[in-house]
Design a protein around this nucleic acid. Structure first.
Length: 393
RNA sequence: GGGCAGUUGGCGGAGUGGUCAAUCGCACUUGACUGUAAAUCAAGCGCCCUUGCGGCUACGUAGGUUCGAAUCCUACACUGCCCA
């Protein structure tokens, strides 16, 4: 792809807002090596496709030779970002942060060239600020500005509590920009306020104001915003079959958006998919291509093909199942085994599943939970057709 | 510091002494249909044992009144609004 084309993509693909667009465009054309900041709070252990969007944007900057400054919000995470929350976010303990961080680098490496990424922890400078300096930071904003912010305003209108602490978050994130001398800051769609705070604070500290770019929101498997707390996420470390399956379960309307935000397909290819759908192609087939592309991105082409084949066998061809997990047991009632193997959450849930005709024993629907099952039997339950084979143990 | 209102299951929101494990809507699970999509229809949706009009735990927390409380009383906690 031509250099000019890449710049255009950076500024437009999956982008919600760019401030100041002309300025950033000029900077990108100038050949200057930009410092592109991105802050990541280790609030969840896994990166999902929604969170991957700004990361992919960073990758694009990286490909043009710019420096990515990844700020691990170890300090800010203990404060809690109010950005994407309808309610107050709890402060994380250092232990939780440590746990969440453990697998981060590896996950980030799936998207970024981590060798050439500058990684900083914001406790490095935030931990040193004294009260006087914090007061000076607070000078950048009025209470009106804070409360005018959408998600604060909504909470005020709803009569919900907003902690003073939450007002501090944008100040800290903004100060990060000063500390690393950012030229550009990338953030998710909900980060607009925070990244703009960086501009105000840099100005106060006599630095040129960074340009900011926010990326679009991605819907999850249920059509709502993808969010770990909704449980509707597809993570970049999901197993290939699982990842593929979740993509196949997406609502049709999201197909093109996923191609655009989560894969590398070009505008032309996207137009082509669009055309095929309009002409009446089965969206399912387009979705299969989408699934393969995404699995290939985070695993491998081979894994993608396998996942697609597996899915085909499992769901399209009458539900014969290829893979069964082994479960050690001497046998027992169907209900007991369902619970012990984790196929059902509780005894009551197991009974419900069996009575709902969703449990197959050795391929046949079984409606009596008292049925004895023994080593050698296979049990399949639920829409996802999770299957176990009982082995002696 | 004072006054008023509120706290019910994932969410919204009924319920003001027994028939309340708690109306209803959303969400969710499962089945039919299908493309593991959507729409529609059906069932389910605290836990345990089981199939009995069973047991246990639950309606902010802790006590109390009562044969019996989500429902009444007291204290406490939290939230909102108003006054200072």
């Amino acid at each position: 792809m031509a250099h000019e084309q890449k710049i255009k993509e950076i500024l437009e693909r999956g982008v919600e807002d760019v401030i100041v667009k002309e300025h950033l465009e000029t900077a990108l054309r100038s050949g200057k090596k930009l410092r592109v900041k991105f802050g990541i709070d280790p609030t969840g252990p896994k990166i999902h496709l929604g969170r991957a969007i700004p990361l992919r944007k960073l990758r694009a900057f990286q490909e043009l030779g710019h420096t990515i400054v990844l700020i691990i919000g170890d300090f800010t995470a203990t404060i809690g970002d109010p950005s994407d929350k309808l309610s107050k976010r709890p402060m994380l303990t250092e232990q939780q942060i440590g746990e969440n961080m453990r697998t981060y680098e590896q996950q980030l490496g799936k998207i970024l060239d981590i060798q050439h990424t500058e990684i900083r922890y914001n406790s490095e400078w935030l931990g040193k600020l004294n009260f006087q300096e914090i007061a000076q930071l607070a000078e950048c904003f009025s209470v009106q500005q804070m409360t005018a912010r959408r998600n604060f305003k909504d909470r005020i209108d709803a009569g919900e509590e907003i902690g003073m602490r939450e007002f501090l978050y944008p100040l800290m994130q903004g100060y990060d920009s000063v500390a690393v001398q950012a030229d550009v800051e990338v953030g998710g769609f909900d980060q607009l306020f925070n990244v703009k705070a960086g501009r105000a604070i840099q100005k106060q500290y006599g630095q040129p104001e960074q340009d900011v770019l926010t990326t679009q929101m991605l819907e999850g498997t249920d059509g709502r915003k993808m969010s770990t707390s909704w449980g509707n996420v597809i993570t970049i470390v999901d197993e290939p079959n699982d990842m593929f399956g979740k993509i196949m379960a997406l609502k049709d309307e999201l197909i093109l958006k996923y191609f655009w935000l989560c894969t590398d397909v070009s505008q032309d290819e996207l137009d082509d998919y669009q055309k095929r759908i309009t002409k009446g192609a089965n969206p399912r087939d387009i979705k299969i291509e989408l699934g393969k592309k995404i699995v290939a991105l985070y695993h491998s082409q081979e894994a993608a093909e396998n996942a697609a084949d597996e899915w085909e066998k499992k769901f399209s061809k009458g539900g014969s199942v290829a893979e069964a997990r082994e479960f050690k047991s001497a046998g027992g009632s169907l209900k007991t085994i369902l619970v012990e193997s984790g196929l059902a959450e509780s005894g009551s849930a197991a009974v419900r599943l069996v009575e709902g005709k969703s449990v197959l024993v050795n391929g046949a629907v079984e409606t009596d939970w008292k049925t004895e099952v023994k080593p050698g039997d296979t049990i399949q339950a639920g829409k996802k057709k999770e299957t176990i084979t009982i082995i002696n143990g």
